[in-house]
């Protein structure tokens, strides 16, 4: 059984605002399935006493002090933006997300 369905790939593409056509859907569903199946093999060797891992390094509590450091200037911040106006990033209106 496939680890990911064609519909799930279409749903994820929609959430990520990626335009994916029918042929691509078949391709990506197949490729993602191979990846997921490969990763799933880890679960086969992990015994019940091995908890799921979200981080590869066994560290906790990496914190920094509340001290201001210089960041970017407005010009630097906007330098990579496709468009800007009045010191702000200018982006197309996002439809139907909020009313």
């Amino acid at each position: 059984m496939a680890a990911i369905s064609r519909e799930e790939v279409a749903h994820l593409a929609r959430l990520a605002r990626l335009a994916v056509n029918e042929t691509e859907l078949d391709t990506f569903a197949g490729q993602l399935d191979v990846i997921l199946q490969a990763v799933a093999r880890v679960g086969e060797v992990a015994a019940a006493d091995i908890p799921p891992t979200s981080h590869s390094i066994p560290l906790t509590n990496i914190l920094r002090d509340d001290v201001v450091q210089p960041g970017l200037t407005q010009q630097e911040a906007l330098s990579g933006a496709p468009d800007a106006q009045d010191g702000r990033f200018r982006v197309p209106r996002i439809l139907d997300e909020e009313a």
Binding site: G71, A77, D86, G87
Partner: peptide, 17 residues
């Protein structure tokens, strides 16, 4: 990140990567 949080600054002047 270590950007300042002061209210009312010019837009995009309290930002970093």
């Amino acid at each position: 990140c270590s950007c300042p949080t002061e209210f009312g600054a010019e837009p995009n002047t309290q930002v970093c990567p």
